[in-house]
């Protein structure tokens, strides 16, 4: 059983007009086996939260803490966080020139586990996971994300989630840009990872439709860099009907 704890997190970015505060005191605790959905309008700071957890250098934590089983995540480098068991499925995965998927997956797996995976079982694991996510075998020999469509990139993020077996997965709008079939395939992948590995999930989304396939235990409404309201799965249904207006009309 692991715990990822975010306490009163304030985050700024540097802009041409000086520092701009984007996260204005976020607190959130996720435990193994739990699925938390973060829902909020565009620009509310959801990706900022995700990227800050992963350690993207652009985001400056001005106060607050993030801990993983008591360990200070903010003191870790980006790669250390991944090795500690954090995984971010990115909203916009980048194309990495020159590196084949095969080579990338094996190198990352070796880094995360601390030892190289046994070649035979690894090849089989990759193949099985690709088939389950309906990713063409030919993708293994292509460069990381190079020329992949938006939907293909998202599937490949979930492929990594299944192979790397993190303690906590943060999924940043993994559902956006997916058609219904792809959404189902990807959701099944997340659910498999949740069932088979000891994992907690932070599911960031703009729409409620993915919540039909991935059932959240908690829903947090994110507005203007803060959690405006929390509840169970039923809160998502209310958002579906009412939208975010109710929250945005309240002056910040």
């Amino acid at each position: 059983m692991s715990t990822l704890e975010i306490k009163d997190l304030h985050v700024s970015i540097e802009t041409e007009q000086g520092d701009k505060e984007i996260l204005k005191g976020v607190s959130l605790t996720i435990k193994t086996g739990e699925t938390h959905a973060i829902m909020g309008p565009n620009g509310s700071g959801k990706s900022t939260l995700a990227s800050t957890i992963a350690g993207h250098p652009r985001y400056k934590v001005t106060s607050g803490t993030i801990t993983l089983d008591g360990e200070d995540v903010l003191a870790m480098s980006v790669d250390e966080r991944a090795r500690a068991g954090l995984f971010l499925a990115m909203q916009y995965p980048v194309e990495v020139p020159g590196v084949s998927m095969t080579n990338f997956l094996r190198t990352a797996k070796t880094a995360i586990d601390g030892t190289a995976p046994k070649l035979r079982t690894w090849t089989k694991d990759v193949k099985t996971a690709m088939e389950a996510l309906k990713i063409d075998a030919e993708f293994a020999s292509r460069n990381v994300n190079e020329g992949f469509s938006g939907g293909e990139k998202k599937r490949v993020e979930i492929l990594q989630l299944e192979l790397f077996k993190p303690k906590f997965a943060i999924l940043d709008e993994t559902d956006s840009g997916l058609d219904v079939d792809a959404l189902k395939v990807v959701s099944e992948g997340v659910n498999r990872a949740q069932d088979e590995n000891e994992m907690g999930t932070l599911l960031i989304t703009h729409y409620t439709r993915i919540l039909r396939y991935i059932k959240p235990d908690f829903v947090h409404v994110f507005v203007d860099g803060k959690i405006a309201e929390q509840g169970g799965a039923e809160l998502a249904d209310r958002l579906e009907d009412e939208g975010y207006d109710r929250f945005q009309n309240v002056p910040a």
Partner: peptide, 28 residues
């Protein structure tokens, strides 16, 4: 090869040196 590539690879547990080598070796 820029900071976003590096961030992506490092966010998968790969340290910076290895990430650079991976990219250049793979490319050449």
């Amino acid at each position: 090869f820029d900071d976003e590539h590096l961030f992506y690879l490092m966010s998968r547990g790969i340290d910076e040196k290895t990430a650079r080598r991976l990219v250049v070796r793979g490319f050449l």
